[in-house]
Design a protein around this nucleic acid. Structure first.
Lengths: 245, 245
DNA sequence: GCGGTCAACAGTGTATACATTAACCGTGAT
DNA sequence: ATCACGGTTAATGTATACACTGTTGACCGC
């Protein structure tokens, strides 16, 4: 039951929360990549941290070769900067960086939602989404914003996962990773996400109705508002003296 | 004179046509990357071509290390497949692949256009775009579809380059590369792009007016129609027995 | 005291050597 | 004849060695 189906599933999970699950058997270069990414996203490697290739290799108990290959990937994803002879530095994002990232991310997510609507929702999928919405509303009432935020990730991830476009999902993953840290930074500042819950319902309705235009509009408005809120909160947080996002 | 300006220009060119200009002084890994990418996009390395790492290294007169680093990048961009112990293979795209790519690309481009409209067009920028439109219309009348197609690239590239979001431009570059080959394949099949020319004018008008919603709509319609046409032509071409896109 | 030049060095970029592992082929049994 | 098993081998994954180049700091001249 818990194992993989024989054919590639039409629906694929996207953007799992940062985790190191299942990297055990992978080649060293992939372990290095996932390990470093995990440390960066969870803050174990704080923004601004600078390490030499040699130090990274020692940290991961590997030689420089796989570590280099991993850092190249991470640099392309925008998580680190490589400055030759100065080491690799964990990127610290400015407000403008976050805005840029969110602009890309929301464009991709809007397209994903359109695609899902174009194909419509199966009953099982619909049920799953509704169930998530219920949970999120209960969490809102209970005031558990942290867990609501995780579920929010899961919800958007679940919807996107139904779009059937693997390249789109990969791109979403990448940019989601880039905004993960600033996003978690402002969780404690969030007000009750009552509006988000309502907007989520609207999105699911449009998806179930198979109406791409309505879905696009709902998703666009939701993201525009939510992203603006995130930027505002982040600005406050940074003004408070928190360093690097 | 020819060197870089002191401050990063606000407008940056995007998606230059495949070229090897200016890779002379770069590190071997970057030369390998650009060289291979160029060969793939221009068809010098045809889809389906398979080469071992050693063979690639010999081809480029380099050792395996920089070649490996280049192939990893190319694989992430979707231009090649790496199958351990079977060599790297130049990807051959199916119609579904192209559709997926265009879905991502158009989503990004729509967002770029929105951003440009949000900030509005300077007089110099406006003039430059209008000038391009004129040229494209003359090329259309002259029936020079090949050159029109190049200018079309340049036009979309120029617009996107004004969006001011570097990450968005990088993503555009990447997906533009993925669709470049199938796009050139169908150039000889294209009808006179009269409609595209009209739509382009509409887009520039919306940009000049600083109306993001109008720009989004114009761009969205343009891409939806043009992409559909491209897919239709490609289907014909593939049905004719052309192998791999 | 300040600025410039040069030399030593550290760190990366590249090449190569070594280990590992999966593909392929041959052999043997059923 | 076909399938299974195992050994061989070739290709990759990883480690290391080497070379090159930018940086840093010291020393000298102004």
């Amino acid at each position: 039951m818990s194992s993989k189906p024989k054919v590639a599933p039409f629906v694929r999970p996207a953007r799992p929360r940062p985790s190191l699950a299942g990297i055990a058997g992978l080649p060293a270069r992939d372990r290095a990549y996932h390990d470093l990414r995990y440390r960066i996203l969870t803050g174990r490697l704080a923004p601004g941290t600078t390490l030499l290739e040699t130090e990274l290799a020692a940290l991961l108990s590997l030689s420089r070769t796989p570590v280099r290959e991993a850092t190249i990937r991470l640099a392309e994803e925008g998580l680190i900067d490589i400055r030759p002879r100065h080491g690799v530095t964990v990127r610290s994002l400015t407000l403008n960086d976050v805005r840029d990232i969110l602009d890309v991310l929301s464009a991709l997510e809007i397209r994903a939602v359109e695609l899902v609507a174009k194909r419509g929702l199966g009953p099982e999928e619909h049920g799953r989404l509704l169930h998530m919405l219920d949970r999120m509303e209960r969490l809102t009432e209970a005031g558990d914003i942290a867990q609501w935020s995780d579920m929010d990730d899961d919800f958007h991830s679940a919807v996107a996962g139904m779009c059937g476009n693997g390249r789109l999902l990969s791109a979403l993953d990448e940019y989601w990773g880039q905004q993960y840290r600033p996003r978690t930074m402002i969780v404690p500042l969030r007000p009750k996400p009552t509006l988000s819950n309502i907007e989520h319902r609207g999105i699911v309705e449009a998806l179930a109705a198979g109406d791409p235009e309505a879905a696009r509009l709902a998703q666009q408005r939701h993201r525009a508002r939510a992203d603006q809120q995130q930027l505002d909160l982040l600005r406050d947080r940074l003004a408070d003296g928190a360093e690097g996002a």
